[in-house]
């Protein structure tokens, strides 16, 4: 169903690139580049959360931003109150994962169809967005942290060395830590996919009825997959909050949910590396277009998205893989043609 890790060359290539960038990047990039690439890394973790639940669990969530925002606000509130950022960072995974498990329980045990699932996840995001937007007054405080309504929460602590709140990470260190998190998330997800649990998840995506006929409880499986994805989205929200030292209700926006869908679709559903590549490509493009002021950024990006969907419906990575395989096969057969059969050494 899914290739075993031992035979997955692409996995090792991605891992290698990730490790090289993690160690070499800060040595060769300037501060602006480091900040920029850190942003790509954070958004890649966010993209992976949806890539996993959609591509390998068959759960199409229109509300991944709910968990992203929840993680961001959890981190912001907890770190402002605690000072140290280590536990808040852990909480930013646990709380969204628990919320995802609860929401998933009602959705999957209630046997919601795919369409209603999409609607419910989207509505939950909108509720969060609306709710947080209405928390502007001083009465909306949790401990020392004021939620701030549409103004958001400023002065969120920068990630510190565990146990030492005064030892903040500088941008290069933050990039390295975030890169390590991205690599860990990528490897862990790949291991999950290659495990029996992962194979069953993919089986459920392929054929729910057959999975059920084999005795697998598809509801329970989906809840677990959804909770894992929610936790990862929440963690990326925390990374976003500490990277910006600021968070506002836009973390819960439809735009944030839509972006994750676009990255996964453009990169290739059913791949982990594809959405990462899509994040880098589309975010970079967005930045370049933003500085050119030719046309509204979103109009151009929307156009690119439509072209991608029409011309590369399987996404960037699967198309690239298919193309490479084809070129390899053609090259191999041409090599064979050039080698004359049965020619004696003396003839050469």
């Amino acid at each position: 169903m899914e290739r075993s890790i031992a035979k997955d060359v692409g996995f090792y290539v991605m891992l290698g690139i990730g490790l090289v960038l993690m160690f070499i990047g800060p040595l060769i990039w300037d501060l602006f580049q480091i900040m920029q690439i850190t942003q790509y890394v954070v958004l890649s973790v966010y993209a992976l959360s949806l890539a996993y639940i959609w591509g390998f669990g068959g759960i199409l969530s229109f509300g991944q931003a709910a968990f992203f925002g929840l993680g961001a606000y959890t981190f912001a509130v907890a770190s402002i109150n605690m000072g140290d950022t280590t536990l808040p960072f852990v909480l930013s995974f646990i709380l969204p994962a628990a919320f995802g498990a609860g929401l998933g329980y009602f959705m999957f045990y209630g046997r919601l169809s795919e369409v209603y699932l999409g609607v419910v996840t989207m509505v939950v995001t909108l509720i969060f967005w609306k709710l947080i937007n209405h928390t502007a007054g001083p009465e909306y405080s949790i401990g020392d942290a004021r939620l701030g309504g549409f103004n958001g929460i400023p002065s969120i602590p920068i990630l510190n060395v565990p146990g030492d709140p005064s030892a903040w990470l500088d941008p290069a260190q933050m990039f390295q830590v975030f890169m390590a998190i991205l690599i860990i998330v990528y490897v862990v997800l790949r291991l999950i996919i290659a495990s029996d649990f992962g194979r069953v998840s993919v089986g459920i995506r392929e054929n729910e009825e057959r999975s059920s006929l084999l005795g697998y409880d598809i509801r329970r499986h989906k809840v677990i997959v959804f909770a894992i994805g929610s936790g990862i989205a929440g963690m990326s929200g925390a990374m976003w909050a500490t990277y910006q030292t600021f968070i506002d209700p836009n973390a819960f926006s439809m735009e944030m949910s839509a972006k994750a869908l676009v990255w996964v679709m453009a990169g290739g559903i059913g791949t982990l590396a594809g959405p990462i590549l899509a994040v880098v490509l589309l975010q970079w493009l967005s930045l370049k277009l933003g500085t050119m002021h030719i046309l509204n950024n979103y109009v151009i990006l929307g156009g690119i998205m439509m072209i991608l969907v029409l011309l590369l419906p399987k996404g960037l990575l699967p198309t690239f893989q298919a193309l490479s395989l084809r070129l390899w096969t053609i090259g191999k057969s041409k090599m064979k043609e050039r080698t004359p059969k049965g020619k004696a050494a003396s003839d050469v």
Partner: peptide
């Protein structure tokens, strides 16, 4: 009871229309 619970009680079920994982091999 749900199908998977019945299956887990030791019932093997072959449906009218073959219900398989189409994207993978016979062996898998």
């Amino acid at each position: 009871w749900l199908t998977h619970d019945i299956v887990n009680q030791g019932v093997g079920i072959k449906t009218q229309v073959p219900n398989l994982f189409n994207g993978i091999s016979v062996y898998e």
